[in-house]
Amino acid sequence: MSEIISQSALRALAAEWIAGGKSVAGPARVKPDLVLYRVLRSGDDLLLEGFQRPSNSIKDFLFPKAEKLYGYKIRGNSIELIENDSPEPAQVIIAARPCDAAALPILDHVFNWDFHDEFYNRRRAATTVVTLACSAHDENCFCTSVGLDPGSDRGSDAILFALGNGQYEVRCATEKGHALFDGKTEKSERTGKAITGPEKRFDAQAVRAFVTTHFEDPFWNEHALTCIGCGTCAFSCPACHCFDIVDAGSAAGNARVKTWDSCQFSTFTAHASGHNPRPAQPARQRQRILHKFAIYPEKFGEILCTGCGNCTRNCPVGLGVLSVATEINHG
């Protein structure tokens, strides 16, 4: 026995969540050739077919591009800090890809080893993730090379499988998932199945072995020549989490803000003295691969990449993890 829901019932349910005050985010077509995860205004905004995956990732809703840490008022030489303690509104992310949802347990480690980042944790606690298993993959998908697959429910509270004819099987994985779908589905004999994954495109262990032994290597020069340091790879990655802390506003003061940053930017590691341990793009490309395949795994026991392919799909010059990793593997 399985639980199923029709596409129209799913849209109606999303509309019900929105009407009930929840923020609902999911894939939407924002331009003829651009699909992004974004906050949906209606159930009809939700795009369920006809694209590989959104160009951004669901981290936008847990670790936003810019987040105010606290405000401050300056009066003479007295400073008042102003914190926002209002509760995080409940949010649902619907039709997330498995490679997006799987990044959340990865981010959980970062934001909670030793020190706890409650900005992230509060959003995480207020968020329910409803994943849609993949029914297609493109040439940039490589989840199976990093230990995932198109039907993985890692990081998901519920996962949907397309059954065809506008029907979806619903499998709830957590209490939060049940809270959304219990009583909203119908019994059925039909069960869904994700596609079999893209064939394995590289050996992650071999990539790790290479990066940990080729710190100074002509490979990085050759490989990174074309990188323009735009940071698109990091910004569209579900797992990249580097950030900066900056003061926003005039000297009269208003807020200190956490903003996304990227190891691909030239200023990322620049010392005030002018010295930069990673003076050019080759060292920065190396850092991205090193962090994902060796540094993070050494600390937290898993790869800092879910194989979504975004960094390669979105890179203006065709780099990204897939290109580099396959080059390392076959080169």
């Binding site: 020190f115 950030f243 802390i245 190891c263 590691t269 341990p277 962090h291």
Partner: peptide, 14 residues
Amino acid sequence: NRMKCGIGKCGRCN
């Protein structure tokens, strides 16, 4: 090394 968060999160100092 340049630091921002000081608490092992911002990914800058490794």
